[in-house]
């Protein structure tokens, strides 16, 4: 599983990355976490509101700072 955090580097984006990291570790998932910071790449996902979270190339949430629990649920581990 590949989890991508889309954001141009604002505070909310960094917090979402930290929450995703926490969620993956807490749930013991075998997932690769990656930041997508280039604006062209973010737009290629069809995302206009950052921060966004994508799983295996599919956008699951945009424009919201998800909690670690919410991320766990999205990843199917809660």
């Amino acid at each position: 599983m590949k989890v991508q955090i889309l954001g141009t580097g604002c505070a909310k984006c960094r917090q979402l990355y930290a929450n995703a990291d926490q969620a993956i570790k807490a749930a013991g998932l075998d997932a690769e976490l990656e930041k997508v910071e280039k604006i062209q790449e973010i737009l290629a996902f069809g995302v206009m509101a950052t921060p966004a979270l994508a799983v295996d190339g599919k956008v699951k949430s945009a424009g919201r700072l998800l909690s670690a629990d919410e991320i766990k649920r999205i990843l199917g581990a809660a």
């Binding site: 290629a44 069809g46 956008v59 699951k60 945009a62």
Partner: peptide, 8 residues
């Protein structure tokens, strides 16, 4: 811009 995917 890509097609928005998923159910965000």
């Amino acid at each position: 811009i890509g097609e928005a995917s998923g159910e965000s």
